[in-house]
Design a protein around this nucleic acid. Structure first.
Lengths: 254, 254
DNA sequence: GAATAAAGTTCCGTGTTTCGGAAGTCGGCA
DNA sequence: TGCCGACTTCCGAAACACGGAACTTTATTC
């Protein structure tokens, strides 16, 4: 189209070109596909890189969609799509540990539980799908918020930190310290912080663009204690990696 | 953050704000969340509207992500996510018609078959998942390309129109006419155009932002003829609507 | 239903940024 | 070493973004 709708129109054309090529595009191909002069294309690509709308992969020569756009995409991915894909992985966790397994997702600026499989004998569940997991008192939420940027986190921390149990962490400073710890360890735990006598463990699910999902186990604290933390975390991490590959289309279709 | 990375940084902040609010944002909320002066916010929103990165919903007062971004989202949605969700719907089509049912997806600038369920007695399939469906000789591809914009279509039509059978349409003009017809009728048919003696029908799957998927039936022409076109199309349309709702997160979780 | 507040829109002089052609640099290859 | 294509930088002219303030429209209150 000759009708370039302002400056944004040209940026949009570059993004369209990049998105339409599943394996990314080299600089010259972008200039050709969009019909932009090389100098101009170069400048636009530089700006897009700086805001994170495209990323340079490999030897810095192939451009693909960037983390900032992938973030929007995951925020808008319907819960059901992810839930459907996660079910088999959750089932195998349940079989192994006989505890409730679940997946949580970043929705807007909150973390929600979106899929759950519970052991057969269990009478009730601790995380109904759709339940909002509080940032300071749920392993699943910690595992996701620990990997968000400061600005976003600061906004989320505006919400009051409700005291659910005597063990709940209710100071912003302590929450931030906890999240830093989660980031370092690669997993989150919540022992009696949300419901008394109930504990949970969760790992972030790595997908290109950032962390938007987590996979976890919940159960009566006493029963969970029979497994070592290392065992639980190793299993969750494995599950998280498997889910990450499925969510980004790199999985061997089972 | 005070560090605005150029003009794109401010647009990005608006988009982030909109994406983080699942139900959309009013003008004033955008200005507040991004910290932009009202006049400025208004101008940026206008530009974003013009390129289709945001849409005004309802009484033109609530802004949500626009079709141009949703398009990127769907282009990048892994095949497996969609395939998993589509399976039950495909199964019920197969049960009813005893013919192969499948879903196709726009990948880059090509249409690919991504999920398929075939009747038990069938010995081989006509559309392996992963097969690229030619724009001019496959119902599934026609059903998708018919709803793409002219620019994109023109680009796709650069590719040579292979003659698969005597019935294949091989002139650009006729292909365009056929696509216009598909757009009007709301479904596409291919009678012996790709493989001799094999026919297919397909309907576009409506999701917010445009058409990126189609659902179809394939089979030996003679066998398919026992159903009236109206019957086939009605069933496909129903399936397409069901899939559309699931894909956009509006479905009643079965 | 009038008064008032809130939400949304337009204007415009100032000043920064974009524009793209052309010239320059890099890196692989014979 | 010298060539070629891919990529990057430069720069003056022109265009556009900037945001405060004034204005219109819509919602709320009494």
């Amino acid at each position: 189209m000759t009708a370039d709708k302002g400056i944004l129109g040209r940026y949009a054309r570059v993004l369209d070109a990049v998105a339409e090529s599943p394996d990314g595009l080299a600089f010259a191909e972008i200039a050709r596909k969009t019909g932009l002069p090389q100098g101009t294309a170069h400048r636009l690509i530089g700006a897009l890189l700086r805001v994170g709308y495209i990323n340079a992969s490999q030897n810095r020569r192939i451009y693909v969609l960037g983390h900032r756009l992938l973030r929007l995409l995951h925020l808008r991915t319907p819960r059901e799509l992810v839930a459907e894909l996660a079910r088999p992985v959750l089932k195998s966790l349940v079989e192994r540990f006989a505890e409730t397994a679940f997946v949580a997702k970043l929705e807007g600026d909150e973390v929600e539980s979106i899929a759950m499989v519970l052991p057969e004998f269990e009478r009730h569940s601790y995380v109904q799908p759709g339940r909002v997991m509080p940032l300071h008192a749920a392993a699943s939420a910690k595992a996701i918020f620990a990997f968000q940027d400061k600005e976003f986190l600061g906004q989320a921390l505006q919400r009051p930190l409700v005291t659910f149990t005597p063990k709940s962490i209710t100071s912003k400073k302590k929450v931030l310290a906890e999240l830093a710890q989660v980031r370092k360890a690669g997993y989150a735990a919540c022992l009696d912080e949300l419901d008394p006598g109930v504990s949970s463990y969760a790992c972030p699910i790595p997908v290109p663009g950032g962390i938007f999902y987590s996979v976890g186990l919940v159960g009566v604290s006493q029963r969970l204690e029979q497994y070592s933390t290392a065992t639980l975390v190793a299993a969750l991490r494995e599950a998280a990696n498997a889910l990450g590959e499925r969510l980004s289309g790199r999985a061997a279709t089972r």
